[in-house]
Amino acid sequence: MALPKSQPAGLSRRKFLSVSGWVPMAALLLLALVPALSPSRATLNLLTQIIILAVFAMSYDILLGYTGIVSFGHALFFGSGAYLVGLIIKHSEPTLGYLLLAVLGTLLFALVISVLIGYLSLRVKDVYYAMITLAFAEFFLIIAQKWRSVTNGDDGFSFRVPTMLQHRVVYYYLILAFVVVTLVFLRRFIHSPTGRVLIAIRENEKRAEFLGYDVLKFKLISTMVAGVVASLAGVAWALQQQFISPGVMAVDKTIDALLMTIIGGTGTLYGAFIGSGLISLAREYLPELAEIHPVFGHWYILFGLLYILIVLFFPGGILGTFRGFPRKRKSQEER
């Protein structure tokens, strides 16, 4: 079974699910109408969360689905984005100017860290990336937990956001704009020559190397793009929650990204929305069903099993399978 290798390159095959196609447009229109149709606080908050987590998952898909490497420390970027914006605004003024400064700082941090981790691990073996990202994420998590004078430790801290962003509906539309811009950027990226090389590396690294591509360089670019987008998602998350605790950097957050990407469909970008929607809804509503049957209290088991089944039998995830991509199964003997 070839997990991320199973989909044909990019999305150009089926126009109907591309940005220019009608499904995303209709979805966007629907989302834009939500505040008018059902302006309840809970709905808007949940939708905002789903969209932000989808951006996070899309950034993960760049690594897993388009480059074929697994990260266990992606929460590091998400969390550092959240912490940086929270800390900077808390220690200055909640103005748009400082927010912009925080975003710039976040970008810089994400670039430096992603290159550092990528350089250390990817030049050895891709599996090292999985282990080393985990270690680094844990490292920063411990800083967040133990550096109490700055981060207030496990209790976390809250902060005020610029007045303009305090309005739920305004923020909702801002997030919608954010996701559209990110989508356009990421689609551009994967259809660019660089993105093509990444897909070539995913398909056959040896061949890409043979063709003269500096594989390490392209993988580093991929981790940088993924890191930057993830940290922006973290910024958006912090601004919505207006509260930050070490949970944003825990390995569970990375696992969430992994689950969302796999369940939605790797190498599809849009799958992230399906994955994020499912997970967020499950987290919101399944625990309530625990009174009916205790298994719902442990809904993570269900997701874990679903995830295992998808990895084993539907490597295209929900979206990939729905699109009917051919799933070539590599011979089990192949090594």
Binding site: A2, L3, V70, Q332
Partner: peptide, 13 residues
């Protein structure tokens, strides 16, 4: 066996 990425993913599950 032989698919490194799938192994990491499955063992995570």
């Amino acid at each position: 066996y032989g698919n490194v990425v799938a192994q990491i993913l499955i063992t995570t599950g």
